[in-house]
Design a protein around this nucleic acid. Structure first.
Lengths: 196, 196
DNA sequence: TTGCTACGATACGGTGTCGTTTCGAATCCG
DNA sequence: CGGATTCGAAACGACACCGTATCGTAGCAA
């Protein structure tokens, strides 16, 4: 640990690289949200970001590579409460998801990502893996609830996770009105039964 | 009713138009499924269909117009059983949807449609309207069940419809494994409670 | 200050798509 | 059969995007 530099990962890069990387990734998000994956071009991203095309090709190999970086960036870490009942923790988790799907600029490009995942292997592998990781958190939570006896012993954690998360994604992808955060309580009540 | 012609809608057109229209629409579906909306081009559709570009422009104004026709074509009519309990009819409806989302070639282009709906107004209006119509059928069915007393009186038909349909779409769009038709029974049981 | 490096801008040749037009061949209909 | 219509194919000029290369400039590090 001698000297100030070379401690972390990217912190000691030329600040110009850090800045351009940031504006390019944000421009990519907006471009994905507006025109989708297929219609997005490197040139349109460069123009929106106010950078030269070469600056993009200096850091990424192409479109799929760039979008992959976006996926990593917007993959918000899931916050799981460790206190409270399983029911409270599930509600909290879903509220976080609902908020994310309603508010975040990142979630505006989700329809584009869904489509891209089915058409482009590189993007698909990432998208499906991330979706699975997030889903697994909920499944584990429900499994704990069953083990501890808080939830019915015949509850299928995998299916229930999809029943809980499905409506949120359904509303986001198949309609133009995201699932309201305030309705999450009612959703949990309908699926897990009235609070004890 | 004099004479054989001019009775229906399109039946008395030149058969060459009917045929080319058919092969073009099917090629469009496959193209949407493979590359998505944004990356789909009129030329690629023409090539796949074995048709001249001009033949496409003769019948449609452009890409959005063509995809709109596809949406109308693949909008399968929803078959609702009129016999049996509400629970049986709901199950049957969802099984039909699950089958459609698993098997049909048309459903392969759903990710593309979802993305297109959010980026293109013309497509969006159609897609969202169709989704709403289908959803309403399920809502009405559940409302009937509440009225007749077969379902709990405090059941929210709108929310429950999304809880039932959500997982099917979630699996289709966010994963690469569609919801198994055989699991629909279990889904209905988990949401509406054990069969009486 | 002095190198060095990443920058934005611009231009390159090559390719693909646009929407239109023009063919002669094939098909339909009366 | 014969006139009308649609067809597939090909070519058009215009434009957009590809990925690369080359500028002079500006910010960085020492």
């Amino acid at each position: 640990m001698s000297g100030p530099a070379n401690a972390g990962g990217k912190e000691d890069l030329d600040p110009r690289i850090v800045r351009s990387r940031q504006v390019i990734l944000e421009a990519t998000i907006d471009e994905l949200a507006e025109v989708g994956y297929g219609a997005m071009t490197i040139e349109s991203v460069a123009k929106r970001a106010g950078v030269g095309k070469a600056t993009i090709y200096r850091q990424w190999r192409g479109k799929a590579d760039l979008v992959e970086s976006v996926l990593v960036m917007i993959k918000q870490d899931i916050v799981v409460r460790v206190d409270g009942t399983v029911r409270e923790r599930v509600t909290s988790l879903l509220q976080g998801l609902a908020t994310y799907l309603s508010d975040s600029r990142a979630s505006l490009c989700m329809p584009a990502m869904v489509s891209a995942a089915h058409h482009d292997d590189t993007v698909g592998v990432f998208q499906f893996r991330f979706a699975n990781e997030r889903r697994q958190v909920l499944v584990d939570l429900l499994t704990d609830g069953v083990s501890s006896g808080e939830l019915d012993s015949d509850l299928d954690a995998e299916l229930t996770a999809e029943i809980l998360a499905g409506p949120l994604f359904y509303r986001r992808l198949m309609t133009d009105r995201p699932f309201p955060v305030d309705d999450v309580d009612q959703l949990v009540r309908a699926v897990l039964g009235p609070a004890t």
